[in-house]
């Protein structure tokens, strides 16, 4: 299932890059892949592969500038970091996937009329609290709240280089990258010290760099340590439970059906949280470019 999402994401990015920017293409008068911000040795295909992988695995290394990707690429890289389960990250591994599995088991377990159990252990209040509260909730808090603050004062705090929908993507990417333990940058923000914009802009740009350093610090700590602590507590409480014997009435978690349900749960609980952002960021940008406004 994860592989399917992964492949789907790569294809989405690759198509975007392959088709290139219609605005540029119009100037060139021919169909060309988008090569802005890319190492030409890698080309569009390998860059797409690398961008998808690096954001999915919380690797953070980049071989091309994600800022310059077409909206498709922005959509995929953001989604990867929102979900944190497309392969899982360095350090935390598939842990987030387990949290989603747990919730999937909980919901579907109820539907077959048994107290849900996962790996032979009953899922009760404590597990749901840990899985949902700390893992589902912390991520949006770490990304959306500072993101919203930054965007409420775009000039004073954010230092966005591309206003509009793309600017929104820039800001959110920054926080998603911090919270998802990734470290890659969408770039294009006045977030470094001394900021590139500081040379042109003066004092206000130093302020944006300070804001970025502090706020991403919060996202990084919250996004990283709270879920890891929660996962450890979860593992601890699961290991203490008395295993429940497997009966024919037990919900099987190794079937294709269950995989499909888990995918649905990930989509609903993980992805939908961030859907408005994606809609206002890359998706709106995609429409914008499609209509030739960009």
């Amino acid at each position: 299932m994860v592989l399917a999402i992964y492949v789907g994401f790569i294809i989405t990015t690759a198509i975007g890059e392959y088709q290139g920017n219609p605005a540029v293409n119009a100037l060139l008068g021919e169909q060309a892949p988008n090569l802005e911000g890319k190492e030409v040795r890698f080309g569009w295909a390998q860059s797409a592969l690398f961008a998808t992988t690096t954001t999915g695995t919380m690797c953070g290394a980049v071989n091309s500038l994600h800022d310059s990707f077409m909206p498709n690429g922005g959509f995929v890289t953001l989604s990867n970091m929102f979900l944190q389960i497309v392969w899982g990250g360095q350090g935390t591994g598939t842990a987030y996937l387990f949290a989603y599995l747990l919730l999937a088991v909980f919901v579907t377990g109820l539907m077959v009329g048994r107290t849900p159990e996962f790996l032979g252990r009953k899922i009760e209040k404590r597990e749901v609290v840990l899985a949902s509260f700390l893992i589902l909730l912390v991520h949006p808090i770490a990304i959306l709240i500072p993101g919203a603050i930054a965007l409420a004062f775009p000039d004073q705090l954010a230092g966005i280089s591309n206003p509009g929908f793309h600017g929104l993507s820039q800001v959110i990417y920054e926080y998603a990258s911090a919270a998802a333990n990734n470290g890659s940058g969408f770039e294009g923000l006045g977030d470094s010290q001394p900021s590139p914009l500081a040379i042109a802009g003066g004092a206000s740009s130093t302020a944006t760099a300070l804001w970025w350093n502090l706020s991403t610090c919060f996202s990084l700590l919250a996004g990283r340590y709270i879920p890891i602590t929660a996962l450890l507590l979860l593992a601890e409480s699961m290991s203490r439970k008395q295993p429940v014997p497997l009966t024919s009435g037990t919900l099987r978690t190794d079937t294709g059906l269950f995989t499909g349900i888990t995918a649905g749960i990930i989509l609903v609980m993980g992805a939908l949280t961030f859907f408005p952002i994606l809609a206002l960021g890359p998706i709106a940008e995609a429409f914008q470019i499609a209509r030739g406004l960009g």
Binding site: P140, L144, G147, A148, A152, L280
Partner: peptide
């Protein structure tokens, strides 16, 4: 709640 609350400034921005 967080999503909707944050939609407002984001939407204002765009």
């Amino acid at each position: 709640l967080i999503v909707v609350a944050t939609v407002s400034p984001l939407a204002n921005y765009v």
